[in-house]
Amino acid sequence: MSRTFLRGDRRRFLARVAGAAGAMLLSGCNRLSQTEWFPRILGVGEKASAAAAALVTSRRSMAQEFTEADRSPQFRSNGTSNPDSPAYQALAAQGFAAYRLEVGGLVAAPASFSLAELRALPARTQITRHDCVEGWSAIAKWKGARLAAVLDAVRPTPDARYAVFHCADPMEADGSDLYYESIDLDDARHPQTILAYEMNDAALPVANGAPIRLRVERQLGYKHAKYVMRIELVASFDRIAGGRGGYWEDQGYQWFAGI
């Protein structure tokens, strides 16, 4: 056999090895994604990111705020745009006059708030950027009651660690699987964390979460629960729905949505 043949042969062999390696990588990554154990290893990345994020910020680090001119001409409605439930539709038909936000769980003084009562609480107005996990961003002006003020009113007990937001929008066509989200109490007490009742100087539209949506500005869009009906203070969210602290978290999305 000639030398050139050997070199060509070797090259073809290596090309085949490279091709096979590519195919193995693809199918290997797919198979690993389907296992129970491998995504848990990948989850180390999420923990490392959360720890690093905590390291370079403080509890009070403020999300960037923008000018009126930066506001997006339209603010996209993503996910639910009009909750398909008789109870919500009845509330909306009367302009949410009968709406009451229930706050309970691990608190000393459970309470409920009408929209007027929420509007009477210390408020904050902020122009912030909403970053969807899909990749797009939109900027809008929000006004709402500071969640810290709500917590001060109900007085969480020392074992309360998370605030869970129970929403009106069913995620299944049969009306089940209500949207929910959770944040820790550091985030809940953050100055920019508000229960927004206004967007761009007008009452919050139904498409964007009327009458109340959470704004938790240092995290991705899916944390900003719309149509909030009830806030529950808990020590752990293990027993709520899928146990991972949110509707999208139960589908595999990261609970720490700061990245």
Binding site: V56, S61, Q64
Partner: peptide
């Protein structure tokens, strides 16, 4: 710079 949380480390750096 795409991380909303890290954007808060030094507001405006993005």
């Amino acid at each position: 710079a795409m991380s909303p949380w890290l954007g808060a480390a030094w507001p405006g750096w993005v």
